[in-house]
C-alpha cells in the first residue's frame, strides 16, 4: 500500500483529480510497479521543473547583480564564441584527470591485492595510506610543483593522490568480504591461494572497485583543477582558465569553464553506470526488484 500512495503522490495528473473515496484499482496498483518509459512525463517532468526553477532563480539574481552571477545567455555566448578554446582546455584537464586515476587507482588496486595476500604488508602500508589521505593535497601541491616542474607530472601526481585512498579502502574491503560458506567449498576442494584470489576474491571485490570508481572519477577532476590552480606556470587547462578569468573578473568565462567541468563529471558518472550495468548484472545493486 505504501508504494501505491507514494506513486499517486508523485503523479501530477492524479493529484489534480482528487478522488479520495475511491480505492486504487488493481490495474493502477500494477502500473505503479511497472518500469515506466523514459518518455512518460512522470519520468522527465520533475527534473525539467527543477531545472527550470533553478534557471529562473539564477536569471533573477543575475539580472540585478552581474558581479555575483553572469547571465546564462552570456555564459552560453562565451562558450559558443570560441568552442575550440574550451575543448582544448577541457581535453588538457581531462588528460590529467584520467592519467591521475590510472596511476592512483592502479597503484591502490595492486597494493590492495598485495595486502590481502600478505597481512604484514597491511600493517605496514595502511598507516601510511591514512596519513597520505588526511594530508590536504592542496598543501602538498606547491611542493610537488617544485619537485616535478610545471609540466603535467605534478598535476597527475596530485590527482593520483586524491584518487588513491578510496580505491585502496574499497578494494581491500571487497577482497575480504568473501562469504564463509563459499570459502569452505573452495577449501574442501583444496583450491590454491591463487585460485581463491582469481576465481573468488577478485570477482567479489568488483562491485566495491566500481563503487570506488564512481567516487574517484569525479574526484579526479577536482584533483586536476586544484593542481592547475596551484601550478602557477601552467598555460592550459580549465583550472588555469578559471583562475586567470577570475583574476580579470570575467565571470562568464569562469562559469563557462565550470559548465565544461560539470559536463565532464556527468559523462564520467554515466560511463561508470554503463560499466556497472555491463559487469555487475549479477549483483543485488543491479536488480530492479530486490526481494
Amino acid at each position: 500500500m505504501a508504494t501505491v500512495s507514494k506513486a499517486a503522490g508523485t503523479d501530477p495528473r492524479r493529484s489534480r483529480r482528487t478522488r479520495p473515496q475511491s480505492p486504487p484499482s488493481r490495474a493502477r496498483r500494477g502500473s505503479g510497479r511497472r518500469r515506466r518509459s523514459p518518455l512518460s512525463p512522470r519520468v522527465w517532468l520533475p527534473t525539467v521543473v527543477a531545472v527550470a526553477l533553478v534557471g529562473a532563480a539564477w536569471s533573477w539574481v543575475a539580472a540585478g547583480n552581474p558581479y555575483i552571477l553572469p547571465e546564462l545567455g552570456e555564459v552560453g555566448r562565451t562558450l559558443a564564441s570560441d568552442p575550440t578554446l574550451f575543448v582544448e582546455n577541457a581535453w588538457s584537464t581531462l588528460q590529467i584527470a584520467l592519467l591521475g586515476v590510472a596511476w592512483g587507482a592502479g597503484t591502490a588496486f595492486v597494493l590492495a591485492l598485495l595486502m590481502s595476500e600478505i597481512p604484514v604488508l597491511r600493517r605496514a602500508i595502511m598507516p601510511l595510506a591514512v596519513v597520505l589521505n588526511v594530508t590536504p593535497v592542496v598543501a602538498l601541491a606547491p611542493a610537488l610543483v617544485v619537485a616535478f616542474g610545471f609540466g603535467m607530472t605534478p598535476k597527475v601526481v596530485v590527482t593520483a593522490i586524491v584518487t588513491f585512498f578510496p580505491v585502496l579502502i574499497n578494494v581491500t574491503t571487497g577482497l575480504r568480504s568473501v562469504s564463509g560458506p563459499v570459502l569452505h567449498v573452495f577449501r574442501t576442494l583444496h583450491a590454491s591461494r591463487l585460485e581463491v584470489l582469481l576465481k573468488l576474491r577478485l570477482p567479489t571485490s568488483l562491485p566495491y572497485a566500481l563503487a570506488a570508481l564512481r567516487v574517484v572519477l569525479p574526484l579526479s577532476i577536482v584533483g586536476a583543477v586544484v593542481a592547475e590552480f596551484v601550478a602557477a606556470g601552467s598555460s592550459s587547462g580549465l583550472g588555469t582558465m578559471i583562475r586567470n578569468s577570475a583574476a580579470n573578473a570575467q565571470l562568464p568565462h569562469v562559469y563557462a569553464a565550470v559548465a565544461c567541468l560539470a559536463t565532464m563529471g556527468v559523462l564520467m558518472l554515466a560511463l561508470t553506470t554503463l560499466l556497472e550495468r555491463r559487469l555487475l548484472f549479477w549483483h543485488e545493486s543491479q536488480q530492479r526488484n530486490p526481494s
Binding site: 560458506p181 563459499v182 569452505h184 567449498v185 577449501r187 574442501t188 576442494l189 583444496h190 576465481k199 549483483h283
Partner: peptide, 17 residues
C-alpha cells in the same frame, strides 16, 4: 581434500553469483 574426494554442501547454497 587435496585429492578432491570431499564434496561439501553448506546451509546456504554458496553459489558464485
Amino acid at each position: 581434500c587435496a585429492a578432491k574426494a570431499v564434496g561439501f554442501v553448506p546451509q546456504s547454497p554458496a553459489l558464485l553469483p
